[in-house]
């Protein structure tokens, strides 16, 4: 009897997940394949439409740019934080965590203030005489990118600090005694050892950007749809449930492919010492 207890304990959670996650998902996605006969027509026609395809490509493009920018900005910052004393590290981690725990509506709204026609950036540029007419920064792909970097940079930094903290500082010193300058030692030693952290962080940033709703909704406007806002528009404004469901599956599959892809890269790079001595 006691062998069954774990399953009894797991049952309520499993039932809820099956009924309110799995079944709704299947019930939404199944019709996109089966309409009397089994076919991929919905997907083929979705991608044939240049407007739809453009949104798909934009989503991927924005996600790639955001991920790359987060790595460029996050890696040195994480390295800096990991190298500070425990007291400072705690403070800097709290400072990094704060934006992460702040509502994404607020964080996107912050960039409306900065990027609008009358926003801080335009005023600043005008006052130093770089521009005479305000630039259109808001409701562009650029504003989605900035907003998404802003949204996901903290999570990359926090993931990386966790990995970099665990790198033995003597390894860096050893590289230096062997003739590597600080920058070289960083590139040749710390960076390769941080790859697992960069991969995990990149998955979070990439899939986060890929599926984020608030930021493209507030900063992208109607002309710069991403998959998530397009799904919402199809479902709730246009009543086009078939397309909404198609987008839903595309988002799930893209997310899974991205995760799998990053993990493959990680395994390829991180070949060192599979078996212990």
């Amino acid at each position: 009897m006691s062998k069954k207890i774990p399953y009894l304990i797991l049952a309520p959670g499993l039932i809820l997940l099956v009924f309110f996650l799995l079944i709704p998902l299947v019930s939404v996605i199944w019709p996109t394949f089966y309409n009397g006969t089994l076919s991929f027509d919905s997907y083929i026609s979705f991608f044939k439409d240049t407007y739809n395809f453009g949104i798909f490509i934009r989503t991927i493009r924005v996600s790639i740019i955001v991920t790359v920018m987060c790595i460029i900005l996050g890696v040195p910052t994480a390295y800096f934080i990991a190298g500070t004393s425990a007291k400072w590290r705690g403070l800097l981690m709290a400072l990094t965590l704060f934006p992460m725990l702040t509502n994404s509506v607020i964080r996107s709204f912050a960039w409306i203030n900065l990027l609008g026609q009358n926003g801080v950036v335009n005023k600043l540029l005008a006052s130093i005489g770089i521009i005479s007419k305000p630039l259109t920064l808001l409701y562009t792909e650029f504003s989605i990118i900035i907003g998404s970097i802003y949204l996901f940079l903290p999570i990359l930094i926090i993931t990386l600090v966790g990995v970099m903290e665990n790198i033995n500082p003597e390894i860096m010193e050893a590289a230096e005694t062997l003739g590597a300058s600080r920058i070289k030692a960083f590139i040749k030693v710390v960076l390769p050892l941080s790859i697992p952290g960069i991969i995990v962080g990149s998955i979070l940033v990439f899939t986060g950007t890929l599926t984020a709703y608030t930021t493209p909704q507030l900063l992208g406007g109607n002309r710069n749809m991403m998959l998530s806002t397009f799904l919402y528009q199809n479902a709730m404004t246009l009543g086009n449930w078939e397309d909404a469901s198609v987008i839903a599956l595309i988002m799930i599959v893209t997310t899974l492919i991205v995760m799998k892809g990053f993990n493959l890269i990680a395994n390829r790079i991180d070949k060192r010492g599979e078996q212990d001595a």
């Binding site: 033995n168 003597e170 390894i171 050893a174 005694t177 050892l193 991180d270």
Partner: peptide, 15 residues
């Protein structure tokens, strides 16, 4: 400086 150093933890590059 061109000094060779052996660290207590050996500090070998794991990668």
């Amino acid at each position: 400086r061109n000094f060779g150093m052996v660290f207590q933890s050996y500090a070998l590059f794991p990668h």
